[in-house]
Simulated scan of single mutants.
Amino acid sequence: MTRRRRTYLAIAVLAGVLVTAGLGAHRGDRDDAREDPCSDLEDLSEFCAAECGGVAEAFADACHAACMMGVCPKELGYTKQDPIWSAPCTDMAGARFWDEIDGAEVRCEYKFHWFQDQKFDPATFYECWRAEAEQRCPEFIGTDWWPRFQVARGR
Rank of each mutant, 00 (worst) to 15 (best):
A60S: 15
W129K: 10
A33M: 11
S86H: 05
A21M: 14
Y8W: 15
A93F: 03
K74C: 02
A49N: 06
D82C: 02
R148E: 14
H26R: 15
T90M: 02
R6K: 07
D102I: 03
Q118M: 12
A33G: 00
T124V: 14
D121L: 11
V13H: 00
A123L: 14
F115P: 00
P138L: 06
E127I: 01
A93V: 04
L9V: 09
A87M: 02
P122Q: 14
R6Q: 06
I84C: 00
E75N: 04
H64L: 15
D31S: 09
D40Y: 06
Q135D: 14
Y8D: 00
F125R: 06
A25R: 14
K74G: 08
W145S: 05
A60M: 05
K74D: 15
H113Y: 13
T7E: 07
A152R: 08
R107H: 11
R155T: 12
K111N: 02
K80V: 11
D36W: 04
A50N: 11
E132N: 02
T143F: 11
W98V: 03
R155Q: 15
C67F: 10
Q81M: 12
P73G: 05
E134F: 11
K80T: 09
D29E: 13
M1A: 02
E127D: 15
A58C: 02
M69I: 08
P37F: 06
F112M: 05
W85L: 03
P88N: 03
T124H: 05
L14M: 14
C108W: 03
K80A: 13
A50F: 14
C67H: 08
G94K: 04
F47I: 12
K119I: 00
C72F: 05
W114S: 01
A58G: 09
A10H: 03
T79E: 12
C67E: 07
A49I: 04
I84L: 12
G70C: 09
G16F: 07
E105K: 12
E57V: 08
F112K: 01
T2A: 08
E139F: 04
R148G: 00
R6F: 06
A93W: 07
G154I: 09
A152P: 07
W146N: 05
C48V: 12
C108S: 02
I84M: 08
R3H: 09
P147H: 05
G94P: 04
I11E: 01
T124F: 06
K80Q: 09
L41T: 06
R107E: 13
A60H: 15
L76T: 06
F59D: 13
D29W: 15
G142F: 13
E42C: 01
D36S: 10
G94S: 03
E105S: 08
M68Y: 03
